[in-house]
Design a protein around this nucleic acid. Structure first.
Lengths: 190, 190
DNA sequence: CATAGGTCAATGTGATCACAAATTCCGGCA
DNA sequence: TGCCGGAATTTGTGATCACATTGACCTATG
């Protein structure tokens, strides 16, 4: 999810087991779960690797992020008090730090933390779980994206999100979330 | 998914294995996958059962169906030719038969086949997979719903969907799909 | 008769093993 | 030098086992 492993990286059951000091059995169960969630792909022979996403797939996942996260933000809006907004601003500072540091994995992690913190207020665990599944599928590919980014951009749309939350502006919030989610992924399909 | 097992039904690894003439290992992997997809729930002790959904959860899943399936229908619309519409009408006939027969599981199965046939035209496998995950989570509860239905209602909204497809009416299609998806689930939360 | 305590069966977990399939690697041939 | 083929290693699958824990049943007691 955090883009710590590159797209197309392959792994073996025995290797995973050795890494975590367990036998093949728990490694197999973890892998099967991640395959079910789309975070890993399995060849017909059972070999497992991180998926290499086609442009069409990335476009779909971006559309899913947009659909789900706009809904989550919209549901969170009426419950978003000042304490939450302060928290979001603080996280946003950490995001900027990671941008400055040039740490792609840290950037992805704190960026997702920003979104998750907001969406937790939506009190919609099933929808949030789906959104996290999408994040999981995009993880490896996101790393490739932010590795390619020439200029590290500050979290512009995050500020729009915070502003819309403060103003209680629902259409503005929906647009800001959609823009933030779509922005980076757009570049990925070029 | 087809509502063949009631909500809250519990099952054991050895029991599943015996049913399908395999050992515990494949049963465990299947169960873990279904748990990851939300189709089964697992207690802290590892016991597995079909989930009993709260009203809030049903509302969430209905919202997810609405979001995802409206998008899928919208993407399928430009690609929907006459052959597809004929196919949908044929499936719709089978749906009516199952309604008349009073076969809840058959009704759910053919109803989902109607939706899947339309959505396959959207050429969006990731979104369709998410929608099917939602169907999976709703399966057992759907059975409880259609078991409670006094009067078996004909697939009214399906006809609206077909009409909108014929007319190329996108707003009408979106509304028809949203209504069809929401209709039954609304009654479930009372 | 109800309830609490204790015993026993049932269940999930993780490890290990045998086996088949596939991938890789290496040598030989064109 | 490039490509093909076979052998050996790697890898996933399914089965079985030991063990700890949980849940259920049964009995005894108030």
């Amino acid at each position: 999810m955090h883009g710590e492993v590159a797209p197309g990286a392959s792994m073996t059951l025995r290797g995973i087991g050795k890494d975590y000091d367990v036998s093949m059995t728990p490694a197999r169960e973890a892998v099967r779960r991640l395959v079910a969630e789309g975070a890993l792909s399995m060849s017909l022979s059972g070999r497992v690797s991180t998926p290499v996403l086609t442009n069409e797939r990335v476009e779909e996942l971006a559309a899913l992020r947009s659909l789900l996260e706009v809904e989550l933000a919209s549901r969170a809006l009426p419950r978003a008090h000042m304490a939450l907004i302060d928290r979001l601003q603080s996280i946003n500072g950490t995001v900027s730090e990671n941008v400055a540091k040039g740490d792609p994995s840290g950037y992805i992690r704190t960026n997702l933390e920003f979104h998750r913190t907001l969406y937790l207020r939506a009190q919609a665990p099933a929808i949030l779980a789906m959104a996290e599944t999408v994040w999981l599928q995009l993880g490896p590919t996101m790393q490739a994206l932010y590795g390619k980014m020439r200029r590290a951009e500050p979290p512009h749309f995050h500020r729009l999100i915070i502003a819309a939350l403060k103003a209680g502006d629902e259409p503005g919030l929906r647009l800001a979330v959609r823009s933030d989610v779509t922005q980076g992924l757009k570049r990925l399909t070029d």
